[in-house]
Amino acid sequence: MMKSVLLYYPFEVAENANSGSKLRPKEIHKAFQQWGSREGVNILLLSGNSAERESLFEQWKAEGKLDDLWFCYMENQTIPFWLTDKGHIPKKPFIDTKVMKFLKQRHVPVGVFYRDVYWKFDELYPLKGAKKAIMKTIYRMEENFYNKYCDVIFLPSDAMGKFVDINREKVSLPPGGKESQIVRNERVNEKAQGLYVGGINNEDYGLFLLLDALQLANKEGSICELTVVCREDEYKGLPEEKKARLQEMNVAVKHVSGEALNALYREMDFAFIPRYRSTYNDFSVPVKLVEYLSNELPVIATYCQAQQEIIETDDYGIICEDNSTAMAKAIENMAKDAEHYRENIQKTFLQKHSWLARVEKIKSTLIK
């Protein structure tokens, strides 16, 4: 009999995945299907709103589809899973407990990916007063639920583990990289081409720290040019003096995505993640990091713990402190050595960090 693996997503999978949190469940599902067809394992995805999950679960149970489950992998969302129905009111509030009890009785190992603990940080969590107290209680219930029914807690990084009050084995499972067909464009420019993709309206992201560093690096003579890719409305909302500064420094500002962004990746030499270091940034792994690396772009990043670990372990770029002097030095070194880092990425990145590699890690962690 063919083994089956249950993917349990207590939410509706987004059709249009425009953010890391929506992209991940889709990519993991695709990689599971790829792995399943290679290993001869049947992949069952149980997702949708609570009513849809309930009816599918009952149907599969009746058909005997859940008789031979090997293990179960679950994803959560940034809000507790009881609230993922439209309007945040579950039609079938007990379905998740029902599924987990079913798995526990049959001794099926369960691992959950626990996405985020921003609710534990007052400066990051927007709710105030009674609402906040209620939500924190529900988040704690969710932690208790995982403690009761799950064998392993997968996290975006090891560094996040100490903020998660669940007494279970914790294993890091950062976002995965994708294979992309990369044909690098011929160099027309002597100067190194650096890229920043992301938010520009939040000091924390460090774009203006990057500009200070770039000014220092280019002081003796221009060695690096910068392209910034951001949302158009964010750019329009920038104060005039910040726009003027980007123009004075000849920074190319673009609002591209999809194929146009892929084409841009091919023209660049390396990319930046200049975030300021904080407790939260220490354990979050920006999806941009794996996107840059998937496109064979070495990365200059600040010394936030989780991103530092991925970049330094296999020498995919340069880590610096979150100040302009240190970053300027990193830019000078990267302008000379980008090729060396790119070769390292080509050698090991996909083999270690593809979504398929993440699926194999899930399996080897849950099936000892």
Rank of each mutant, 00 (worst) to 15 (best):
S55D: 11
P126E: 10
Q33G: 10
N42W: 05
Y149C: 00
G198A: 09
G111L: 11
R275A: 07
Y303L: 09
V228F: 03
F154R: 02
L211P: 09
K329C: 04
S180C: 11
E169M: 10
V5K: 03
E220A: 15
S180V: 15
S19N: 13
E39V: 02
Q77E: 09
P10H: 05
H107Y: 11
S364Q: 14
S278H: 05
S294P: 01
L56R: 14
V251T: 05
E360G: 04
E169F: 01
F81H: 11
S284W: 00
I28Q: 11
Y118I: 12
K352L: 11
L366W: 02
H107A: 14
L69Q: 04
E179D: 08
A328F: 08
Y196W: 04
T365S: 15
R342L: 07
K361I: 06
V359D: 02
K170W: 06
N250L: 11
E234Q: 15
W35T: 07
R277Q: 14
P274R: 10
D204W: 08
I138K: 03
V13W: 00
Q34N: 13
D282G: 04
N344K: 12
R231P: 01
D165I: 00
P175W: 05
Y146A: 04
A159L: 09
G129V: 05
V99I: 14
M100A: 13
F113I: 07
P175F: 12
V359M: 08
D165L: 06
V112D: 03
T84Q: 10
L226M: 14
F270I: 05
K162C: 13
W35V: 07
L46Q: 07
D314L: 09
A252V: 14
G317V: 03
I138M: 02
E54I: 01
S19P: 00
I273V: 15
Y303M: 14
V112S: 02
L211R: 07
N144H: 11
Y341K: 05
N76Y: 00
N250V: 06
Y265Q: 04
Y146Q: 01
V253I: 13
E58G: 10
E12K: 15
Y316M: 03
T227A: 11
V171E: 13
E123W: 08
E225W: 00
K363L: 03
T279V: 15
I300R: 04
E190K: 13
L69W: 01
K86N: 10
K136C: 06
I367M: 14
S19V: 03
L207N: 12
K98I: 00
E332L: 14
L289T: 02
K26L: 15
A260C: 01
R106A: 07
E58C: 13
E232P: 03
N344I: 05
D96Q: 02
K368D: 09
G129R: 03
K336M: 12
K243D: 05
G48N: 07
E203I: 10
A217L: 11
L66V: 06
W82A: 01
C72E: 05
P239N: 12
W82T: 01
W82Y: 06
Q351R: 12
G237C: 08
L6V: 02
P239I: 10
M327G: 08
A328W: 11
K254P: 00
L264P: 06
K136D: 05
